[in-house]
Structures are given as structure tokens and as C-alpha cells.
Design a protein around this nucleic acid. Sequence first.
DNA 1: TTGACAACATACCGGGTAGTATGTTCCCGT
DNA 2: ACGGGAACATACTACCCGGTATGTTGTCAA
Lengths: 237, 237
Amino acid sequence: MSSGQTQNLAYQRPQRNGEDRNSVSQSRDQILIAAADCFKENGFAATSIDDVAHMLGATKGMIYHHFRSKMDLFFAVYRRGMELNFNATEPQAQVGGSPLERLACMGMAHAVALMAHQPFQRVLAQGVAMHQTGSTTAAQRDTLSDLIRTRDTYEALFRKTIEAAADEMNVDIGDPSLASKSFLAVLNSTVFWYSPRRKNARAEQMSLAEELVNYALRGLGMTPPQGALEEWKQSNE
Amino acid sequence: MSSGQTQNLAYQRPQRNGEDRNSVSQSRDQILIAAADCFKENGFAATSIDDVAHMLGATKGMIYHHFRSKMDLFFAVYRRGMELNFNATEPQAQVGGSPLERLACMGMAHAVALMAHQPFQRVLAQGVAMHQTGSTTAAQRDTLSDLIRTRDTYEALFRKTIEAAADEMNVDIGDPSLASKSFLAVLNSTVFWYSPRRKNARAEQMSLAEELVNYALRGLGMTPPQGALEEWKQSNE
DNA sequence: TTGACAACATACCGGGTAGTATGTTCCCGT
DNA sequence: ACGGGAACATACTACCCGGTATGTTGTCAA
């Protein structure tokens, strides 16, 4: 489904068949996925709209029907990526248990989500890189700043929990901002080298995530709560 | 010196003055620095040769006189980046002391070099990203694979020392490859957010590096050797 | 039934850019 | 002193790609 092959030679009417609820958002989703794949493969600048369209077996017109510009498409992919992260991690921040246990579960959720939605995560990385540079117009820089801000809130979610855990366990973590950056750096590192195996991808991701969370927690000077980690792995299949 | 301003309107003869030993490699160096700056700012694909030339107050012809293609230029920048890393870190791997102390000093050297040569380091990151993707011709993929291989040797330098330290201190680090990846991930994280202050950049970098090395060592389950770290800071000004 | 609109496809234009071909100046060996 | 080559600059081309304008088909509401 992700290899560009079915190029339409003749015009094909929109499929309005059966249980098709909202084909619009469905098409949009397809585009987002294909775009994330392309951006991940070649980067934003080196990816053409035609590349994305070709991967869908569609044409440039279709994409410009759903997105105003290439930048808009990129932003939408970025938002979806953040959405996936929030959906995975935020619930873990509000369950019971000690701050340390919550932190461990958040880390697990984040790490697994990262590996499961790799293309989107690489787009996130490109987004921050773009933000540090002089890129494009003022309006685009504004929206980009907004997007980065949601990323900061996401990081703050971790920082707060880290501070709470450090407070409760009476460990000195130094600068909380630096600590949380290091913490996330460990979990995010998979983006640069992990590629999923065909078999048992989920199990592999979970065991990898566990090792990373262990490392990251030890780096903070905390002892990983093995019980909570095992429990999380059980309850997430 | 790095802001594009002095555009040559008339042809300027090559400066063959005084103590000019080898202006060739000097020009090459200037190009490499400018290219690293541009690639860091906008990424490889979004950077034009004219951009690099303009930053030097030179023209496209000059760059194509020294480099066969844009890719060649990128590779050269990559090599220079690896060279800087090796020059900084390798000496630390061969001094006396325990493996743990060596590891700490290597980490410090690596982290400081990273912040001191940020543009080159970002190019390195782009290089690995390029390698995971289908980019360009077969020949270019070959040279790129070579470059990545030198990067693997660099990582192996750390992995070996980590294993030695773990062996000596009798700590279990799990998968050594994963451990060294996490270790370097912490130190490398500065690439994504650090930007040097005007004042006391060196001192700031050293204290940042120290905190990161502490985190990374604790992550491995090791206790940072404060003495060796202080000594390193002293002997590196 | 009809016409307005959504959801695409097709055709085209213009700007930017990698690479090349060629001109110009200086230096250095003979 | 001179000719060849190094070290650039200038001029040009061919191509790719973002964006737009326009055509085509189905659908649904009135």
C-alpha cells in the first residue's frame, strides 16, 4: 500500500460506495501518511508534491485540493505527529501511583509511540530543525512557532513529572530543563537508528523501550520501578 | 566574517602575498566552513551552491573548481566533521587511568567538540539521515556508506571503553550497542537546542558537558569520577 | 432535471538551481 | 619572455518543482 505503483492513466470517479462515512478526512489521512513517509525518506526540501501524489497513485491536483501549500501539508503532518504523542502519553500522566511510576509509564508510552509512528516523528525532528533557521515567510514562521510551542508543552509534561519524582525521592537533578532534555534525548534516540522487524515488532519495541526508560531514569539518579514497568507491558499487550 | 557581504563586482586576482603557504587548502577550508554553516541553517537540499558562494563573497565557479559536485562538497564537510571528532576524542582514549576515567574524559571531549563545531555536527546528523534513505546514485551511496562506516568506528571507540569500564566495575549494561547509543544520544542532544552565548562560551560548554557526562554515566549504572572530570576541565583551560 | 459544488485530473507557467562551457588574470617553471 | 596551467569569474542551459488555471466527473439538493 505504500509503494507507488497504481498510476491512474484515465480519470477515475470518486468512490462513493457503501459505508463510506467521510471520505474527505479519509483522503486527508492517506495524504498525511504518504507525506510523512516521503518527508522521512528524503526530507522536506527534497520531497516534491508529485512524489507524495505518486505514492498515493494520485496527482498533484488532489493534494492541492486538500492543502494550500507544501508548507501547509508539512504543518499538518507535524500536528498529527504531536497528536499521536499526546494521545499516547497524556493518559499515563494522570493515572494513580507515585510520580516515579507515572514517569516510567510515560516514558514507555512515549518510546513505543515513537517507534510505532516513526515517519511522523522524523517530521517532528525536521520541524524543530526548521525552526532554528531562517526559513520562509513571516506568517509561516508564526504558525511554526505555534507548533513548537505545543512541543514545549509536551516536554513540560515530562519536566513536571520529573520534578515531582525528584522531589518525592529527594534526588538532585540539577537544572530540570537540562534533565528533561537528556531524558527525552535517550528515548528519542531510536528515531535515528531503529527500523522495525517484520515479526514481533510490538514485542521488540516494548523491550527496547524498557531498556531505554531504565537508562533514562538511572541518568536522573532514580531507580527504575520494575513492578510498574512490568505492569505497563502487561496491560499494553 | 561569516555574513555574506563583500560581493566581488570586478574580478579580483588571487592573493599570493607574503607568508601564504598553501592558499589552496586555505580556500578549501573556507568553503567547508561556509558550506557547513549553510547546510546547518537550511539543510542540504535547500542549500544552493550560490548560497555557499555568496557567504564567501565568491561565485559558483570557485566552488566547482574545488569540488566536483554538491554531493562531493557535502561529503567533504562530513569528513571534516568526523575528523574534528576524532582529533578531540581519540587522544583521550589512550591516556592512563581507569577505563571509567578514560570514558569520562572521552565524553567531555566529545561533548565540547560537539558544541564548538556545531555546524559540522549538524551535517553529520544529516548524513546519517541521508544514509537511511534512497538518495542519489549508486556510487554516491557507496561513498556515503564509507563515511557512515567511519562513524561506526567512532562509536565503537566509545563502546569498547564502555565495555571495559563495565567489566572493571562489574556493572551490567545489557546490550553494549544499545548502551553506547544511549550514551552518545545524551551527549549529542545539545546539537538540537544549544546555541553558544557570546560571553564565556568555553566555560559554559564545559559545565554543560559535565552535566551531560554525569547523566550519561549514571545511565550506564556508573558513578561519575568527579576527580577526573575536574582534572580534565582544568587541563583544558 | 438541472445546476451548483465537491473531488479530483490535466495542462501550463515561471522561478530557482545543478552543472557546464568559456573567459580572464596571475604565477611559475623553463 | 613566454606559454601553460592554476584559480578563479561570467554566461548559459536544461531541468525540476511549486503553484495556478482549467477541465472532467459524480452527487445531491431543490
